[in-house]
């Protein structure tokens, strides 16, 4: 089987169909045994990740992989890591942060206390970027940030706030393009090829395990950041998660998506107005449009 292997002959319709069954069974097994629900993630992406794992371990079928996933918990952690993409950077899409400063910050300044939820924070680069921006705008001290992810490994890194020094060249460049008011190096100390971000930045950040698919509303917030997470979900799941966001946002709350994500083709297009079209910054409407 696994006729995608180089030099194998053509893939028959039967093989294709059987593999699709195997993928569904594997996701069902993961959900039933471990409670992680990937059933409505993008199938094309899942299949690519699953195939990579098959090749790495030399398994011939997805059923073999399923057997291992069910009976070997340590292996499951590895497989979970395969399925979660944690690629991130500081001030990713600098233009987004620039626009955020111009179009959102003045609005945020009208609040005496501010609650922000950053969903899918990965290893934390994005949340430290946000904290720096808020600090420069004199907002950090009145803000409570909830930074959540369903991957415990990345949350651990995020909490520590330690990153490789070699990344800082790109991040410093992003920071300037993002409208930074000082130098990125003002916010960290370097040691042995690593940098440690200032604890004053993370003082008001709570890092927590939260699964967007299976967990519910946990706080009412003024602003939600959820960037480059929804792209991994199918339409059904996007709608489910957007419902959660809609319920978690206060009146006129703000939603920031990734620059290639949008509310178009979703059920919530009418519930938000556009603060910035290009940078995908939305504002919750008191009464949804018809």
């Amino acid at each position: 089987m696994l006729s995608d292997k180089p030099n194998d002959t053509n893939v028959s319709q039967e093989v294709m169909d059987t593999k699709d069954i195997e993928v569904d069974l594997l996701l069902q097994a993961v959900f039933m045994k471990y409670g992680h629900d990937f059933r409505n993630y993008s199938k094309a992406h899942l299949k690519r990740r699953i195939n990579q794992r098959l090749q790495l371990n030399g398994y011939n079928t997805i059923s073999e992989l399923q057997n291992k996933v069910l009976w070997d918990k340590t292996f499951f952690r590895t497989f979970l890591q395969d399925l979660s993409i944690n690629v991130t950077e500081m001030f990713r899409d600098p233009e987004f942060y620039l626009t955020f400063r111009e179009k959102v910050v003045s609005d945020l300044k009208t609040y005496a206390r501010l609650k922000i939820w950053q969903a899918g924070c990965s290893t934390g680069e994005e949340v430290y970027s946000l904290a720096i921006l808020l600090k420069e705008e004199d907002l950090l001290s009145r803000t409570q940030i909830y930074a959540t992810d369903f991957n415990k490994n990345v949350l651990e890194t995020a909490k520590q706030g330690i990153y490789p020094k070699k990344e800082m060249e790109l991040y410093a460049k992003n920071y300037i393009e993002a409208g930074g008011k000082g130098k990125l190096s003002d916010y960290y100390t370097s040691k042995y090829g690593s940098v440690l971000f200032d604890k004053s930045l993370s003082k008001n950040i709570v890092f927590a395990d939260h699964n967007l698919v299976t967990d519910g509303v946990f706080a009412e917030v003024n602003l939600i950041f959820c960037r480059n997470v929804l792209i991994y979900f199918d339409k059904f799941l996007q709608n489910k998660v957007l419902k959660l966001f809609n319920e978690s946002l206060t009146k006129r709350g703000i939603l920031c998506l990734g620059t290639k994500e949008s509310l178009r083709f979703t059920d919530f297009e009418q519930s938000f107005s556009m603060l910035d079209k290009k940078m995908r910054i939305y504002k919750k409407l008191q009464i949804p449009k018809k």
Partner: peptide, 18 residues
């Protein structure tokens, strides 16, 4: 900067994989 994928319902999906 994004990978482009085709889903079985003939829609596009994107990913930020390495």
């Amino acid at each position: 900067n994004y990978h482009l994928q085709i889903e079985s319902d003939f829609t596009f999906s994107l990913s930020t994989d390495p």
